[in-house]
């Protein structure tokens, strides 16, 4: 089994390769985030990641004017409502843009601003076609879809990995990372999407909270770990038996014990009547506020 990323790099820089493809991007080329004046931590996190990966930072300013609640509203009231709403939204977006421009100063691959008076999740979805990683965080308090892009909605709508930052000013080191494994499409996606993080980590734990046959879980984790090793990742397999805790709690407990600050997992869920319904593990990972979570769907 070859375990040497340098071999590939040498091959790809071989003379038959075109000049343009000689650059070897080893990570995310563009990091996207929704910039809001009351969420400076999110922007700081996205900026730090763009810096780490040498990626461009794409900032999105987006806010929609909520419709006036149904009632005996006259056309005049509607017009005033929209005028007042768009003025407030534009003011917020102007502040966000200033924040973004300050953040972009000194950024190696530069920044790009996109703004639109539309639902944040929709603007983010459009912008994400040219991005590799989305940085999101839960809004402080209840989410309002006209102002906020919820991490869970982004994970489902964009087809891109979404890094969910915990509340507060936490800095992601991603030196020790846990891959929450399950033999599902979503986990297989997450494994590939997180490779740039994995390759820079000092240790990656491939963790499966075992079902009835632990030796099968062991074999699966070992299989995944050796595939990651071929990508130059320091990965180790770990299958643990199901305990009295739920799977989500077990993953969090094991991650703490491993000293990880990032959990990579599949986002299990679907959208139903505009509401996102999530599986138990995904909910558990989204409702804790200590660790970073990278979700792929």
């Amino acid at each position: 089994m070859t375990d040497n990323p340098e071999t590939t790099i040498a091959r790809e820089a071989a003379p038959e390769t075109r000049v343009e493809s000689r650059r070897e991007p080893d990570g995310y080329a563009a990091v996207l985030t929704h910039v809001q004046r009351d969420a400076p931590e999110r922007l700081a996190c996205a900026r730090a990641l763009a810096q780490r990966f040498g990626a461009a930072l794409i900032g999105v300013g987006a806010e929609a004017i909520p419709p006036l609640a149904a009632g005996p509203a006259t056309g005049m009231v509607q017009a005033q409502w929209i005028a007042a709403g768009s003025q407030a939204a534009e003011e917020n977006m102007r502040a966000a843009r200033e924040m973004f421009e300050t953040a972009c100063a000194g950024l190696q691959a530069g920044g790009e601003w996109q703004a639109s008076l539309d639902l944040p999740v929709e603007v983010m979805t459009r912008a994400s076609r040219a991005a590799d990683l989305i940085v999101a965080s839960a809004p402080d308090g209840a989410a309002n879809r006209y102002r906020d892009a919820r991490p869970s909605d982004l994970a489902l709508a964009t087809g891109r990995p979404v890094l969910v930052a915990p509340l507060g000013e936490k800095v992601l080191s991603a030196q020790r990372v846990v891959l929450a494994w399950r033999d599902t499409r979503e986990a297989r996606r997450a494994m590939v999407d997180a490779l740039p993080f994995f390759r820079r980590a000092e240790a990656v734990l491939v963790l499966e909270v075992g079902g009835p046959r632990l030796e099968d879980a062991h074999r699966r984790c070992a299989d995944v770990a050796s595939a990651l090793q071929r990508h130059g990742v320091r990965a180790e397999p770990s299958a643990v038996a199901a305990s009295r805790r739920t799977e989500g709690e077990e993953i969090l407990t094991q991650s703490w014990a491993f000293g990880a600050d990032l959990i990579v997992a599949g986002a299990y869920g679907h959208s139903r009547l505009g509401e996102t319904i999530f599986g138990g593990v995904t909910r558990a990972l989204l409702s804790q506020h200590a660790l970073f979570v990278l979700l792929s769907h």
């Binding site: 075109r18 343009e20 493809s21 000689r22 650059r23 070897e24 991007p25 080329a29 563009a30 461009a56 076609r129 040219a130 991005a131």
Partner: peptide
């Protein structure tokens, strides 16, 4: 507009 965004994204990865 959309496709030129894709071209830019590919260029970031060294794909002309």
């Amino acid at each position: 507009a959309e496709i030129s965004q894709i071209g830019d994204w590919l260029a970031r990865y060294g794909v002309a």
